[in-house]
């Protein structure tokens, strides 16, 4: 399976590291997920939601970084 080639993002001549972009999107995706879990009261099924949030940020960052951005 082919994965994206790691590359930096050039924004107005400023090179932004791919991990930073991946973590930004990872945090946003985790935020969206936790909002949905709250909305449908599924948050009640987790023992300690803050740790779940942290785990989601890491998982999303790794997934986005590995399969979409390439880090």
């Amino acid at each position: 399976m082919l994965t994206p080639i790691p590359h930096e993002f050039a924004i107005g001549g400023v090179y932004v590291p791919p991990l930073l972009v991946a973590s930004l999107f990872g945090a946003l995706a985790a935020l969206l997920t936790t909002k949905l879990l709250n909305r449908y009261r599924l948050s009640n099924y987790f023992f300690y939601p803050p740790l779940v949030s942290l785990a989601l940020v890491i998982l999303y960052t790794l997934c986005i970084g590995t399969f979409i951005i390439g880090i």
């Binding site: 936790t34 909002k35 009261r41 948050s43 099924y45 939601p49 803050p50 779940v52």
Partner: peptide, 11 residues
Amino acid sequence: DWAPWHEERFA
């Protein structure tokens, strides 16, 4: 109603 006070929620 105290039940919702004990529910876990994401911040």
